[in-house]
């Protein structure tokens, strides 16, 4: 179990794997924004703590 975890850890530390994971993370967020708001500019309500 310990060796397996070590291997997974090492795998995710590889530069190209790190890059791919990060890029996928950014792309997924952009995709999420696109799905919710489309190409319209959001006029999201203010932040709750702006009131204070």
């Amino acid at each position: 179990m310990g060796t397996m975890m070590k291997k997974i850890k090492t795998f995710f530390q590889l530069p190209y794997v790190c890059w791919t994971v990060k890029m996928s993370y950014y792309l997924l967020i952009l995709l999420g924004l696109l799905m919710i708001y489309g190409f319209k500019t959001t006029n999201s309500s203010a932040f709750i703590y702006n009131e204070f």
Binding site: Y25, I29, S44, F47
Partner: peptide
């Protein structure tokens, strides 16, 4: 900033 987009404009919105 990307984390902010995820939190505010996706999760909080949903």
């Amino acid at each position: 900033i990307f984390l902010g987009f995820l939190y505010k404009f996706i999760i909080a919105y949903v």
